[in-house]
Amino acid sequence: MFGSARLALAERYAGLLAGDGTVRGLIGPREVPRLWERHLINCAVVSELVPADASVCDIGSGAGLPGVVLAIARPDLRVTLVEPLLRRTAYLEAVVSELGLENCEVRRMRAEALHGQARYDVVTSRAVAPLPKLLAWSLPLVAPRGAVVAMKGARAAAEVADAAQVLRRLGCAAEVLELGAGAPTCLDPPTTVVRVVRSGSDVRG
Results as ranks from 00 to 15, higher is better:
Gly200Val: 04
Arg155Asp: 13
Val149Ala: 01
Pro184Trp: 15
Gly153His: 04
Val106Gly: 06
Glu83Val: 06
Arg34Ile: 15
Ala156Asn: 06
Arg145Leu: 06
Pro189His: 08
Leu85Tyr: 00
Arg12Val: 14
Leu65Glu: 04
Asp76Arg: 08
Thr185Trp: 15
Val82Tyr: 06
Val46Trp: 00
Val69Gly: 04
Ala10Met: 05
Ala158Gln: 13
Gly60Cys: 03
Val123Asp: 00
Val46Ala: 11
Leu70Gly: 01
Asn103Cys: 12
Leu49Cys: 12
Ala5Val: 03
Ala147Ser: 15
Cys43Trp: 13
Ala143Leu: 03
Cys57Arg: 11
Ala156Lys: 03
Ala94Asp: 09
Asp58Lys: 11
Arg30Asn: 11
Val79Phe: 02
Leu70Pro: 00
Cys172Ser: 07
Leu101Phe: 11
Leu35Arg: 05
Cys186Arg: 13
Ala44Tyr: 08
Pro132Ala: 14
Ser138Met: 07
Ile27Ala: 13
Gly180Tyr: 10
Tyr13Ala: 10
Asp76Ile: 00
Val197Asp: 06
Thr191Asn: 02
Pro66Val: 04
Ile72Val: 10
Arg108Asp: 11
Tyr120Cys: 07
Leu86Cys: 00
Ala161Ser: 13
Cys186Gly: 08
Ala113Gly: 10
Gly28Lys: 13
Asp188Gln: 08
Arg34His: 15
Ala52Ile: 01
Leu7Asn: 02
Val82His: 00
Leu134Tyr: 13
Thr89Trp: 04
Arg155Phe: 01
Ala143Gln: 04
Asn42Glu: 14
Ala161Asn: 08
Gln117Pro: 03
Arg12Ala: 15
Thr80Met: 08
Arg126Pro: 02
Arg169Ile: 10
Arg126Leu: 09
Tyr120Phe: 15
Leu114Asn: 09
Val106Cys: 09
Ser97Lys: 15
Leu9Val: 05
Ala156Gly: 05
Ala52Glu: 14
Glu175Val: 00
Arg198Ser: 02
Gly15Tyr: 05
Arg78Glu: 12
Val32Cys: 04
Leu70Met: 05
Gly67Phe: 08
Val194Asp: 09
Ala94Asn: 01
Ala157Met: 12
Leu70Ile: 03
Arg145Trp: 01
Val128Leu: 15
Val203Phe: 12
Leu70Val: 01
Arg12Glu: 15
Arg110Asn: 07
Val203Cys: 08
Leu139His: 03
Ala52His: 12
Leu85Ala: 08
Val45Gly: 09
Val122Pro: 11
Gly100Phe: 03
Ala52Thr: 05
Cys43Phe: 13
Arg88Gln: 12
Val148Thr: 03
Leu77Thr: 14
Val123Leu: 07
Leu177Met: 14
Pro84Ser: 01
Val197Thr: 09
Leu81Trp: 08
Ser138Ile: 00
Glu11Val: 11
Arg168Tyr: 01
Asp202Tyr: 08
Trp137Tyr: 11
Glu98Met: 02
Gly67Glu: 10
Pro130Val: 13
Val96His: 07
Leu135His: 07
Glu83Gly: 01
Arg126Val: 13
Val142Leu: 14
Ile27Lys: 07
Val122Cys: 13
Leu26Gly: 09
Pro190Lys: 06
Leu170Pro: 07
Leu131Met: 02
